[in-house]
Amino acid sequence: MAYVGIDRVGKSYGSPRGPVLALEDISLDIRAAEFVSILGPSGCGKSTLLKCIAGLEPVSGGTIAVNGKPLTGPPEGMGMVFQRDVLLDWRTILDNVLITAEFAGTPRARMKPRAVQLLTRFGLGGYEDRHPWELSGGMRQRAAICRALLCDPDLLLMDEPFGALDAMTRDDLNLELARIWNDTRKTVIFVTHSIAEAIFLSDRVVMMDRNPGRIVEVIDIALPRPRPLAIRETPEFGRYVAHIRHLFARLGILKDDTP
């Protein structure tokens, strides 16, 4: 049985000119402990689909089930990382991470050692008493990931969390996320615009097109783990990149750069 089961899901929004169809006939089964990336252009409904899986947006048709239970709201055991870090500037970094425990009704004192451990793992040891406005964008996003991981979720949803970061910071966080996944085998659904990032991190890459948002292909990534960044320079990696770029070019999403 799929851990996340998406069956013929559609999503539409109302507008003065009539309904706008954001997602159409989305069906996908995601196994427990699988890392799946959703890849596609802006406006294809990647983030909308993720919000539906998170129980933050109701579907207009079809069903979504997590761990065999149809969604009626956010599923149990879920953590989420958004495009922006959404940290609270008036709280310290440690208090921002511990807010997850507060929402869960778990005593702060019980979760504080884990929060400190996560911050240290993500290179924020010694910054526990700083405020978000004292940190760089990359450091803030690391804190947001720690917040999502605090209660050890079984399902981790990530909505293009590294899109606003510089290339070196993005590479560093890709490596740390891969290590976290290798250590914990959480079920991860990761939204991205980056072809290389999707291939590097994932077991499968779900390619989407727009108008309306729909799945056009699901690609199994048969690269060995753990994966160093140097794997991106191998012929095997290059073949995945070329395949995805070619399909997006046929769809008119990317220009065909064939001479």
Rank of each mutant, 00 (worst) to 15 (best):
residue 58 P to G: 05
residue 232 R to I: 14
residue 161 P to Q: 05
residue 27 S to A: 01
residue 125 G to L: 08
residue 146 C to G: 11
residue 214 R to Y: 11
residue 84 R to G: 15
residue 17 R to M: 13
residue 170 R to D: 03
residue 236 E to R: 10
residue 138 G to C: 03
residue 120 T to D: 14
residue 40 G to L: 08
residue 163 G to R: 13
residue 101 A to G: 15
residue 93 I to A: 08
residue 92 T to K: 02
residue 199 I to L: 07
residue 150 L to Y: 06
residue 176 E to D: 08
residue 231 I to K: 02
residue 193 H to R: 08
residue 119 L to T: 01
residue 211 N to K: 10
residue 180 I to F: 07
residue 256 D to R: 02
residue 59 V to S: 06
residue 25 D to S: 14
residue 93 I to V: 06
residue 190 F to Y: 04
residue 137 G to D: 03
residue 257 D to K: 15
residue 115 A to V: 00
residue 228 P to T: 09
residue 67 N to I: 07
residue 42 S to L: 03
residue 117 Q to L: 12
residue 199 I to G: 09
residue 225 R to D: 03
residue 196 A to S: 12
residue 244 I to Q: 13
residue 43 G to E: 05
residue 254 L to Q: 07
residue 251 L to M: 02
residue 131 H to M: 10
residue 237 F to D: 14
residue 52 C to D: 15
residue 65 A to T: 10
residue 35 F to C: 04
residue 36 V to C: 04
residue 204 R to K: 11
residue 214 R to V: 14
residue 68 G to C: 09
residue 225 R to Q: 03
residue 165 L to E: 08
residue 51 K to D: 10
residue 214 R to P: 14
residue 112 K to Y: 07
residue 196 A to L: 08
residue 191 V to L: 08
residue 208 M to Y: 11
residue 128 E to G: 11
residue 163 G to V: 00
residue 140 R to W: 12
residue 71 L to Y: 05
residue 87 L to V: 03
residue 205 V to M: 09
residue 2 A to G: 03
residue 234 T to V: 05
residue 201 L to E: 00
residue 226 P to M: 04
residue 242 A to H: 05
residue 157 L to V: 00
residue 128 E to R: 01
residue 19 P to N: 06
residue 246 H to C: 10
residue 64 I to Y: 05
residue 76 E to F: 00
residue 36 V to M: 04
residue 101 A to P: 12
residue 4 V to R: 10
residue 81 V to L: 07
residue 211 N to E: 13
residue 80 M to Q: 06
residue 94 L to W: 00
residue 139 M to R: 01
residue 183 D to G: 01
residue 150 L to N: 09
residue 147 R to S: 00
residue 162 F to E: 03
residue 157 L to K: 03
residue 245 R to E: 09
residue 62 G to M: 08
residue 19 P to M: 04
residue 126 G to T: 05
residue 119 L to G: 02
residue 241 V to D: 01
residue 90 W to R: 13
residue 43 G to N: 10
residue 180 I to M: 08
